[in-house]
């Protein structure tokens, strides 16, 4: 509005003030979260390094074989070997640890929220617009307040990644719970189940395939976000890509990019739930 018919609403200023308020008053709290998150990621990196690349490759090839069979196992074996060969192993482990941390926290936070949304209509109507907002907001925007609250490095990356990756887990958990046939829920209630018994014995087992689809999507989103998170200093393959872009290095850009694609496909196939174990 250049004609100044209406004064500009200082929306940006308000948000600024809000973040400042939080930073000033809860700095210690967020500082602790930040160091906790960073510590956890570092621990994972150390663990993955400890089992050596060979150990890691064998472990994930085995998991891929168990989950999906020969094809995916072979891909995992060759893909991880390629990452090692190209010399991106350490950075790949950092990216991997960031993804695992973010996804685990997404599930820990998202699953209960999804369950509540699946049971309670009021909560669902509150959380749905929030999820819409989270998913449509350009992902870079999350990085700015994250820096204020958590500084630079691992922690803001993880937090921004969780915010970006959590919506599918919440949405599909909600959907899965709501898709359980009404008469099965009624049957469970008619025998005098408590809400928890109904949830754990009937609703959750029956919505597992849908929930797994949500977690799979969250993993993919997390992987794409940890690359973006390199902008706030999160280490890993994203940092390589970032460096390649800023210094116009096509070779590094593609090598790191391919490493990301390999991890993405591997994680996607392993976490997909195509084979239903019980009929």
């Amino acid at each position: 509005m250049n004609d100044h018919l209406l004064p500009k609403i200082p929306l940006g200023h308000w948000i600024d003030l809000f973040i400042q308020f939080i930073t000033n008053n809860f700095e210690g709290f967020f500082g602790q979260i930040a160091s906790g998150l960073a510590g956890f990621v570092e621990l994972l990196v150390t663990a993955f390094e400890f089992i050596t690349p060979i150990g890691f490759i064998i472990l994930f090839t085995a998991i891929a074989f168990w989950r999906r069979g020969w094809g995916v196992a072979l891909f995992t074996l060759l893909g991880l070997a390629l990452i090692y060969d190209l010399g991106y192993w350490h950075n790949a482990m950092q990216t991997f640890s960031l993804v695992v941390t973010s996804v685990v926290l997404s599930i820990v936070i998202g699953l209960p929220l999804g369950i509540i949304a699946g049971i309670n209509n009021t909560f669902k109507s509150i959380i749905t617009p929030i999820l819409d907002l989270l998913q449509t907001m350009p992902s870079f925007v999350y990085l700015i307040p994250a820096i204020f609250l958590f500084g630079t490095g691992m922690a803001p990356g993880v937090v921004a990644t969780i915010i970006f990756a959590i919506p599918p887990t919440i949405r599909l958990t909600n959907l899965g719970i709501r898709q359980v046939p009404e008469d099965l829920v009624e049957a469970s209630e008619s025998f005098g189940s408590t809400t928890m018994q109904k949830l754990f014995k009937v609703q959750l087992p029956l919505s597992m395939p849908t929930i797994m689809a949500g977690i799979n999507q969250s993993i993919m989103l997390a992987l794409s976000m940890v690359v973006v998170a390199s902008l706030v200093g999160a280490p890993g393959l994203g940092a390589d890509v970032n460096f390649a872009v800023t210094s116009l290095r096509t070779d590094i850009g593609f090598e790191a990019g391919i490493a990301i694609v390999i991890i993405a496909i591997m994680l996607d196939r392993i976490s997909q739930n195509t084979r239903s174990k019980k009929q």
Binding site: P181, D183, L184, E186, A187, S188, K201, V202, L206
Partner: peptide, 8 residues
């Protein structure tokens, strides 16, 4: 129940 409502 009419449609049996067995837990699959």
């Amino acid at each position: 129940f009419q449609r049996f409502a067995l837990f699959p």
